[in-house]
């Protein structure tokens, strides 16, 4: 998968030392997931329960609706289970051809 080769040889430090803060933001772990959450806009009332439950902190309330950051979401589906309005459904990801 092309996505996995995000770092080139030269960008790697000896002994895997990380010299600058913020590297975990650059490391987009979203591709780990098999399922992804999809928001049904009409059902969401911005109660924020999903924001509190998301273990990866991927959901924020924006413009009175939940907004899910797929870059770091691993598809655990807790948001979907906990949503009282059933506004989040889980969809199987379709892998793009390598």
């Amino acid at each position: 998968m092309a996505k996995q080769d995000s770092r080139k040889d030269s960008g790697i430090t000896a002994g895997a030392v990380i010299t600058k803060a913020g590297s975990s933001m650059k490391n987009k772990t979203g591709f780990w997931g098999v399922f992804k959450p999809v928001l049904l806009n009409s059902r969401c009332n911005a109660c924020g329960i999903c924001v509190q439950y998301c273990p990866d902190g991927c959901i924020v309330i924006k413009d009175k609706k939940a907004s899910i950051n797929q870059d770091y979401c691993k598809g655990c589906a807790i948001c979907s289970k906990e949503c009282p309005s059933k506004a989040i459904i889980m969809q199987k990801k379709i892998l793009k051809s390598c």
Binding site: Q4, G15, A16, V17, I18, T19, S23
Partner: peptide, 8 residues
């Protein structure tokens, strides 16, 4: 710096 970090 961070040492001993996880490598994917």
């Amino acid at each position: 710096v961070t040492m001993g970090a996880l490598a994917y």
